Structure formats: C-alpha cells, structure tokens
Amino acid sequence: MEYRKVMVEKLAADFQEKSLGEALNIVSCIDGEIRENHVRIQIHAIGLNFADLLMTTGRYQERPSLPFTPGAEACGIVMGFGSHCTHTADGIPLKVGAAVMVAFPSGGAYTEQADVSSDNVFSLPRGWTFTEGAGFVVAAGTAFVALDERAHVKPDEWVLVSGASGGTGSLAVSIAKAMNARVIATARGQEKIEFVQKALGADAVLDVTKVDVGSLVNKVKEITGGKGIDVAIDTVGGDLMKVCSKCLKWNSRVIIVGFAGGAISASVPPNVLLVKNASLIGVYWGSYFKNDKEVIHRSSRLLREFAECGSLKPPKICAIFAIENAAQALAFMAKGKVIGKVVLTTRYFVNDSVSGTSRMLSKL
C-alpha cells in the first residue's frame, strides 16, 4: 500500500516558512510485511514540538543523517500487528481498528503510516479526539516523568512552571494540579495568562513579557509566604532560570526539560545548589525508551488513569495544518504565539471523532 511522508532533505537556514519549505519535501513510499514485533498505524494527526524545529535546522542535541523524517508523536488507528505484540505500553490489549497514540523517540512522525514497536503505542483516553491524542504523548510524558519520577512532587508543594501556555508547560501545570501541588506559572501576554489560570487552574500566573528578575522573585516569595518554591519545571531557559535560582527553598529540585526560549547557557549557580541543598536535574523523556522502558509503562498507565477520571484534561489544540503544509505549521509555531499544541493532519483525517474507526479502516 502506498503512503506519503515528509522528508528533511537539507537543513533549513532559519525558522522562516521559505527556508523550511525548501528543506521539507513530501515523498511516496510502499509498505511491506509487518514485522513480528511491530504495530502498523494509520496516522490521522501529528503533534508538533519545538524540538522538530531545532532538528529541522540542525540545532537539536540529536542530529540524524539527511534525509530524515521529523516528528515525535502522532495519533491514528491500528491497521495490524505482528505475532509478538499483544498490548499497548499502558497495558491495553491491541486490537485492529483501535484508536491509539504513538511516540517516535527517534523521529519519524510526519507520515501517513508507520510501523512501530508496541512499546511506543498508547491507548487513546475515552472521549478524546485524534488531534488531542496527537498532542499529548511527548508533552505529558515529559511533564509527568519530570514531576513524579524525578522531582517526586508531594501534595501542597509549590511548583513553578515556566512557559506554561506551551505544550509541555500546560500539561505540567495540569499534572501538577492533579497531583495536588500548588502551581505558580509564567506566561507572556493576557491571552496566555487567562488560559493558564482559567483553563489549567494554576494558583498564580506571572506575566513575563518583560523579564525583571528582581520583581518576579519578589512576587514568587509573596505568593509563597516568603518560603520560595519546592520544584521548578523549566521549559524555556534563559533569564527565567535566574528567577528560579533566587526562589529555591531548602532541598528543592530544578528540572530542565527544554530551551524554548533559545538560550541554553543559563543555569543555577553551583553555590546556590550547595547552600540550598538543591538538585539540578535534566529530563529527556525519549531516552527512557532505550534505557528504562518500565518508567514509560508505569507513567503511561497513571496518565491514562488521570485522563479517564477527569483530573487531567486533553491538551488545547491551537492550530491545525495539513501535512502538506508542514513548513507553514513549523513557521507558525516558531513565532511564539502558540497556546497549547499545533497539529498536522493527514488525508485519513475525516473529522476529529474516533467513532467508526474500524469502519473507516475497512474501506481502505
């Protein structure tokens, strides 16, 4: 069966649509037999991440050889699976026609069809749509591992989340609240602030349109009664890390999950870590697929439980583009105006309902 995928044939010079368009190309492929340990997925929607932009321009910490297909997450339906595959990563029996979310830790999501390990397949929470599922796996997995596995967040602890209106930041706020923590979030502009406070339920939101480190530190200390923060989840980097470093309680944890702000040099001074008995921790969720799959399995089960009991809402979808317009979508994301997630859709995306997926599959 023929399907199409996006290939990066040369690195883009910058984040502009023209440069990205010159780097990306749609190619046709023919599938083969499904291997014994793989699941074949018909992709309906694809979630975009800032890492896609960095990889497409050669600025990511992992640099695949050209040509390559970018993308870390998608959502679709199971077309078939090999004899060694029985369950999704979160423990649900595999079934042809079932709606699932898919992780691509080494890239490859910008495609209409994919064969992946069952460890990379996750059941779609009941009532969620394809686009919501496409924007969930990487951000939620990163946020949950950061908060639970690495920071060991406890109820009533103060958690500071930077970049809280973005994909990972917004889910970090939601998951922290589901864990009964108290959340201070940062965002830029009134629209993003209202989204983080009203839709996500952050206890306080700081406007960082203009970063005044001293003023922000005073606000954090005022909110926490002078005590400071127990955990910082940093998705942005740069000057906001300076704010974190001046607000830490004793025995606090600073978790670095990304550099959406562009700067990767700023960090917490070693003397602050020493005096505060604080920990500076990095989280790269994709590395767990290679090094500790049990963390993926356990966290995905807990996230599904959060989602299906209603304590964790699906991600907000900010914009939807056709896969043919991937360059336009990436350029839009680069402008920094995204609230939630940006998603691509394939030709198999008829509507955003998962009902009738078996019927749709049978027509192919």
Score class of each variant (00 low, 15 high):
residue 150 R to D: 03
residue 232 A to T: 08
residue 188 R to W: 09
residue 161 V to K: 11
residue 111 T to Y: 07
residue 301 R to Y: 02
residue 334 A to Y: 00
residue 96 V to E: 15
residue 233 I to P: 01
residue 263 A to K: 14
residue 208 V to L: 04
residue 39 V to R: 03
residue 128 W to F: 14
residue 82 G to C: 04
residue 53 L to C: 04
residue 172 A to H: 09
residue 235 T to L: 09
residue 80 G to P: 06
residue 186 T to V: 02
residue 19 S to L: 05
residue 305 E to A: 13
residue 34 I to V: 15
residue 153 V to I: 15
residue 36 E to C: 10
residue 182 R to A: 03
residue 195 F to N: 03
residue 32 G to F: 11
residue 205 V to A: 06
residue 174 S to W: 01
residue 302 L to S: 12
residue 79 M to Y: 05
residue 48 L to P: 02
residue 130 F to E: 00
residue 94 L to D: 02
residue 315 P to L: 01
residue 358 S to L: 13
residue 297 H to V: 13
residue 10 K to R: 15
residue 189 G to C: 01
residue 194 E to F: 08
residue 279 S to C: 11
residue 319 A to V: 08
residue 29 C to W: 07
residue 146 A to I: 06
residue 260 A to C: 08
residue 338 V to L: 06
residue 193 I to E: 00
residue 4 R to T: 13
residue 33 E to Y: 11
residue 259 F to M: 11
residue 103 A to W: 00
residue 87 H to I: 05
residue 219 K to V: 04
residue 165 S to Q: 11
residue 280 L to S: 09
residue 129 T to V: 02
residue 308 E to I: 00
residue 226 G to E: 10
residue 282 G to M: 05
residue 108 G to N: 02
residue 316 K to F: 12
residue 311 S to E: 09
residue 330 L to Y: 04
residue 206 L to Y: 07
residue 345 T to I: 14
residue 121 V to K: 08
residue 288 Y to P: 08
residue 189 G to H: 01
residue 347 R to F: 02
residue 203 D to T: 02
residue 306 F to Q: 03
residue 42 Q to Y: 07
residue 104 F to G: 01
residue 244 C to D: 13
residue 214 G to F: 07
residue 126 R to H: 11
residue 160 L to M: 15
residue 295 V to R: 11
residue 236 V to P: 04
residue 198 K to Y: 12
